[in-house]
């Protein structure tokens, strides 16, 4: 991308940089001083790429940063749950009033058992498993996100675990939450995450002999150009995108 960057004005004619007031600085996530992890990179603006870029925005590169770790006290019952899970937690993220516990896959079973059985936690309902593929999150490309609810306490938490692309293994929660059965099959089907210990990890939505895992970011959406009134409309994944 750096090749395409239009040559800027000479250093000598460059205007002195405007002093940045706080509102011009991108919002910093999480507590200051804590490391934030970029999960990807956003390039350009307005969808301009390559030599057609006369705006100069095409050379922009910005990291994609998810909300960072929260620090204690988290407030209210968040601390109760965090205390009970403490040694098993990698990171706690609180964003928009929802709490996410990032748990290493080796600790996932122990954490899930505790979440279900601890009388202070009692998360009886596993709402589902949602896979997310972050191709830019090196070593943690495949995330499995669990939403749990406690009927007893009327609380919700999110548990997130990650696996590298080269070793896409996550322990299955079916022994603890039988409801995870189909959800894990769907996540395997769509993302290729292998849930170790699942009783029958087979495809569920795609045909049995389907190659690939369609909802990964490296799997194309597909589609053909459509002709409309003489013009050809490209398929959605090849249209100009406003990243």
């Amino acid at each position: 991308m750096s090749d395409d960057k239009p040559a800027g004005p000479e250093k000598s004619v460059e205007q002195p940089a405007v002093e940045q007031s706080p509102e011009n600085v991108p919002e910093a996530f999480g507590e200051p001083g804590l490391e934030v992890r970029a999960v990807g990179e956003r390039q350009g603006m307005f969808g301009v790429q390559g030599s057609g870029d006369t705006s100069g925005y095409g050379g922009l590169v910005a990291p994609v940063v998810l909300p960072g770790a929260a620090q204690r006290p988290y407030g209210g019952w968040f601390d109760t749950v965090a205390d009970a899970l403490d040694p098993l937690i990698e990171q706690v993220v609180i964003h928009r009033g929802e709490i996410t516990f990032h748990i290493h896959r080796d600790n996932l079973l122990a954490a899930a058992r505790k979440l279900r059985d601890d009388p202070d936690l009692r998360f009886e309902l596993l709402s589902g498993v949602s896979g997310v593929h972050y191709p830019g999150d090196a070593g943690r490309e495949l995330h499995a996100v669990y939403h749990l609810m406690s009927f007893t306490w009327n609380r919700r938490v999110r548990v997130e675990t990650a696996a590298p692309d080269g070793d896409p293994h996550v322990p299955s929660l079916v022994p603890i939450y039988p409801a995870a059965d189909w959800h894990e099959r769907e996540t395997w089907d769509m993302f290729g995450i292998q849930f170790d210990g699942h009783p029958a990890l087979t495809r569920i939505l795609m045909p049995d002999d389907w190659p690939g895992h369609p909802q990964r970011k490296d799997y194309p959406l597909g589609g053909i150009p459509v002709e409309y009134k003489g013009a050809s409309v490209p398929p959605p994944d090849q249209r100009r995108s406003y990243n």
């Binding site: 919002e27 996530f29 994609v64 940063v65 998810l66 909300p67 964003h95 928009r96 929802e98 996410t100 709402s127 997310v132 996100v145 939403h147 919700r156 999110r158």
Partner: peptide
């Protein structure tokens, strides 16, 4: 939309 995740059932 700011980066992050949400679940509102």
């Amino acid at each position: 939309v700011p980066a992050g995740q949400a679940y509102v059932p």
